[in-house]
Lab assay of single mutants.
Amino acid sequence: MASQGTKRSYEQMETDGERQNATEIRASVGKMIDGIGRFYIQMCTELKLSDYEGRLIQNSLTIERMVLSAFDERRNKYLEEHPSAGKDPKKTGGPIYKRVDRKWMRELVLYDKEEIRRIWRQANNGDDATAGLTHMMIWHSNLNDTTYQRTRALVRTGMDPRMCSLMQGSTLPRRSGAAGAAVKGVGTMVMELIRMIKRGINDRNFWRGENGRKTRSAYERMCNILKGKFQTAAQRAMMDQVRESRNPGNAEIEDLIFLARSALILRGSVAHKSCLPACVYGPAVASGYDFEKEGYSLVGIDPFKLLQNSQVYSLIRPNENPAHKSQLVWMACNSAAFEDLRVLSFIRGTKVSPRGKLSTRGVQIASNENMDAMESSTLELRSRYWAIRTRSGGNTNQQRASAGQISVQPAFSVQRNLPFDKPTIMAAFTGNTEGRTSDMRAEIIRMMEGAKPEEMSFQGRGVFELSDERAANPIVPSFDMSNEGSYFFGDNAEEYDN
C-alpha cells in the first residue's frame, strides 16, 4: 500500500510504541512475548500442572481467558453494579484439565481477579502490559475465525453469508486497541457500523446529549479505520460520505453494504499476525530463551520457528480426527482463516481442507461434555516452508469459486491468482447506482469489472525454506488448481455463540 510509510507498523501498534527502528520493534515485541511466557509459567505453578498438562491447549485457553477477564475493567465495573446470582464479580476462573488415573478430569478453578492481575503485572515488570493482553485477544479471535462461520451475524446486519472472507476479527472485544483495529476485516468494521446506525434509528437519543457526542466521535473513528483499509480513492470518498452524514440511517447502511461487497474484489488491507497460545510461549521462556534479547516478529519467520520446536497437546472428542484438529489450530496460529487453501497447503506441506470436510468441533470443551471418553493427542503445528504475512489485500483475480465463501483475504505475501467468483459478486451490483453516491458507485463498479483474471497478485513473492531466515531465496510455489480455494466452501461450520 502506498501510504505504508505514514502508518505505524503493526509491531508498533502491538507494543504501543512511538516510531521505533526494526531492532527496537523486535525487542519490544519480544518483551511482550516474554511477559506472556513468564505469566503462563507462574500460572502453571499456581495450578500445580504437570509439564504435559501445561502444554494442553484447553488449559492455555482457560488461563488466557482468566487474565483477560481480570483486566476487563468495563465488564468488571458492570458486574459490580449489576450483581447477578451466583456470579462473584471479583473472581474469575474456568475449567482446568488434569490427568488422573490414566483419565482426563475437569476441575473448575476460581481465583481472585486481583490475584491474577498481581501475577500478570509481576510477570511483566510491574506494568499492565496491555500489548500482551491484546495479543491474547487476537489469538482467540484468530481461533474463532478458523472455527466458526459468522453466517447468522452477517444475515442479521443485512449482509450476504458468502462475504465471510471479510469477517476477520469479528469476535475481537471493543477494547483491543490499535492492534485489534489493524486485524479487523472490512466486513467486521461494516458490521460494527451498521449495528451502531441501527441503534440510532431505533433509539432517538442515541446521537443526542453528552453521551451522543461520545457516540458520534466513536462512529467517526470507526469510519476512519474502515476508510484506511480501502485502497481505492472511490471507496475512500464513499467512506467520507458515510462519516460526514448528519443523521446516519438506511442510506448509510446501503452504502456500507455496497462497500463491503466491493471489497470482495477491490480488497481492503487487513493486517495478519501470528499470535500463538500462551502454552507455546511459556515452555520456550522456561527453556531459557530470551525473546527480548533475541527479538521477535509476528509477521516473519519467528512464529514458524517457534511452532517448529513446540509440543502442544489437545483434548480430542471420541469421533474427532486429531489431524483435522491440528489443521484448525495451525490455521489459527498463522492467522489464515480466509487465505486461499492452495497457498496454505503449499506452505504447510500437507493438504489443507475446507472447514466442512474437517471432523472436528471447536477447541474448547463445553462444561456439560462427558470427560470419560476424552483422549488427548499432539497437535501437528509444523510447516514445510515459511512466508511473510501481508497486510495488503493483493490485486484481484477471477477463479472458480464456491457456493460458500466467494473470495479470499490473503494472509501471506505469496504470488498467486486470487480466487473470487466474479459473476456471483457482480450480480449483486445491478441497477442500484442512484442517489448521492452514484458517481462513486459507478466508478467502483467500473474498477471491479476491469479486474483481470490473468493478473498475478504479489508478483514474484515466494515462500522460503525454514533454514532461509533472511528470506534470501524465494520459492514461487505451484498450486494444484483442481483443489478448492475457499475454506468455508459450501460450508456447515458451527455458528459462533458468545
Score class of each variant (00 low, 15 high):
2 A>N: 00
20 Q>D: 00
20 Q>W: 01
21 N>H: 04
21 N>V: 06
21 N>Y: 03
29 V>I: 15
33 I>K: 00
37 G>D: 11
41 I>T: 14
45 T>I: 05
49 L>S: 05
52 Y>D: 03
55 R>C: 12
56 L>T: 14
57 I>S: 05
66 M>L: 05
69 S>Y: 04
74 R>I: 02
83 P>Y: 02
85 A>G: 13
87 K>R: 11
104 W>Q: 02
105 M>W: 07
114 E>P: 04
122 Q>E: 04
125 N>Y: 13
131 A>Y: 02
133 L>I: 15
136 M>K: 00
144 N>T: 10
145 D>N: 04
147 T>E: 08
157 T>L: 01
162 R>M: 05
162 R>G: 11
177 G>S: 07
179 A>Q: 06
184 K>Y: 05
185 G>Q: 11
188 T>R: 02
190 V>M: 14
191 M>G: 08
194 I>H: 01
199 R>W: 06
203 D>K: 14
205 N>K: 12
223 C>W: 12
223 C>N: 09
228 G>D: 03
229 K>W: 12
230 F>K: 01
235 Q>F: 07
245 S>V: 04
248 P>E: 08
251 A>K: 06
259 L>I: 13
261 R>D: 08
265 I>C: 13
269 S>F: 01
280 V>H: 00
281 Y>C: 03
286 A>S: 11
297 S>H: 06
298 L>T: 02
300 G>M: 10
309 N>A: 14
314 S>Y: 11
317 R>M: 03
322 P>Y: 06
325 K>S: 00
328 L>T: 06
345 S>W: 04
347 I>S: 10
348 R>W: 08
349 G>C: 07
365 I>Q: 08
372 D>R: 04
374 M>I: 15
388 I>D: 13
391 R>I: 07
396 T>C: 10
399 Q>A: 11
409 Q>V: 13
417 N>C: 03
424 T>S: 12
425 I>H: 00
428 A>W: 02
428 A>D: 00
431 G>T: 07
435 G>E: 11
435 G>P: 10
437 T>H: 06
437 T>D: 15
438 S>I: 00
446 R>V: 13
446 R>T: 14
450 G>L: 13
450 G>W: 05
455 E>Q: 15
459 Q>H: 11
463 V>L: 11
470 R>K: 14
470 R>Q: 00
473 N>C: 00
478 S>F: 14
479 F>P: 09
483 N>H: 09
484 E>C: 00
487 Y>F: 06
489 F>N: 05
496 Y>R: 06
